[in-house]
């Protein structure tokens, strides 16, 4: 499986990941190599094998519906890049 630089640019956009223009071809090469490595899996017959999503063969534990969290806005917002009127700010979003 080999990717094109267009593919890589498209994936990078999906991941909102800035990639320097001059690096695109090396990423393309890296990704193609990785996909080639991964392609070894296709040779194995996995029919009727249940996918294993998690190593813990267990069920989800449930939490009682009790408020445990207190307001920590000020502490959390001291590490935020841009805050005004207690809101996190991002460039204007147009719907």
């Amino acid at each position: 499986m080999s990717l094109t630089t267009d593919d890589v640019n498209q994936i990078a956009y999906l991941a909102r990941l800035g990639i320097d223009h001059q690096d695109t071809s090396s990423y393309t090469q890296n990704l193609s190599d990785m996909l080639e490595l991964v392609a070894q899996m296709q040779a194995v017959n996995t029919e009727n094998i249940e996918p294993m999503a998690h190593p813990l063969d267990n069920i989800q534990r449930l939490r009682p519906d009790i408020i445990t969290e207190t307001n920590q806005r000020d502490a959390f917002q001291t590490i935020a890049p841009q805050v005004e009127d207690k809101l996190y700010l991002v460039p204007k979003v147009i719907d």
């Binding site: 939490r63 519906d65 009790i66 408020i67 445990t68 969290e69 307001n71 920590q72 806005r73 959390f76 917002q77 009127d85 207690k86 809101l87 996190y88």
Partner: peptide
Amino acid sequence: ATNTKIFSGASTAYGAEPNTQACA
């Protein structure tokens, strides 16, 4: 209509001051 969020123990009450009910 729960007291707390689906995955955290923060309150779901409507109309609170912005970001006071958003836990980590």
